[in-house]
């Protein structure tokens, strides 16, 4: 069964289909069910995602922030949950300071709305993080050309 991801986002920034194919996406915490789940906040909804992560405690497996704005600069430094910040290289947002379980990934050629600009690239890294946690840094890409 695929992992559950709670996606909090402002209106008009839907979850990319490419991400829905990899993980079960819900939009309300009540729909997440009894199992642990990951939280993705997009843009202005990042503050809400941080609140969910703080309140739901150990039920949260991972926190992902897409182009976070409006959060205190050191809000992520003391987080115990594995956290992934995703920024676009065409955006001018400063990367927040990360804590010991923080990860930062740039999506090349994406602006503020990363999931709209490069949906497959965004979905790939987010789903990897949801499914494999901090082990997402280990490549599983095969490079055999002719087996």
């Amino acid at each position: 069964m695929s992992a559950t991801l709670l996606h909090l986002h402002p209106a008009g920034t839907p979850t990319p289909e490419a991400l829905r194919r990899r993980v079960r996406v819900v939009e309300r915490e009540a729909d997440a069910g009894a199992e642990p789940f990951a939280v993705l906040g997009s843009g202005d909804a990042c503050a809400a995602a941080l609140r969910v992560a703080a309140q739901a405690g150990s039920r949260i497996t991972a926190l992902i922030l897409e182009s976070p704005s409006g959060i205190p600069t050191d809000a992520l430094r003391s987080l115990a949950v594995p956290t992934l910040v995703v920024l676009g290289t065409r955006d001018d947002l400063e990367a927040p300071l990360l804590g010991p379980r923080g990860h930062l990934v740039y999506v090349y050629d994406a602006g503020r709305a990363i999931s709209a600009d490069r949906p497959e690239a965004f979905a790939d890294v987010v789903a990897d993080f949801v499914e494999r946690g901090e082990a997402f840094v280990i490549s599983r890409t095969e490079t055999v050309i002719h087996p």
């Binding site: 990367a95 990860h103 990934v105 740039y106 999506v107 090349y108 690239a121 790939d124 890294v125």
Partner: peptide, 21 residues
């Protein structure tokens, strides 16, 4: 340019290059 300038470890989700750390 990013690798030279970025002070924190970062990943790169490109079209042609991918690095997670």
């Amino acid at each position: 340019l990013r690798a030279w300038k970025e002070p924190q470890p970062f990943g790169w989700q490109g079209r042609h290059f991918q690095f997670r750390t």
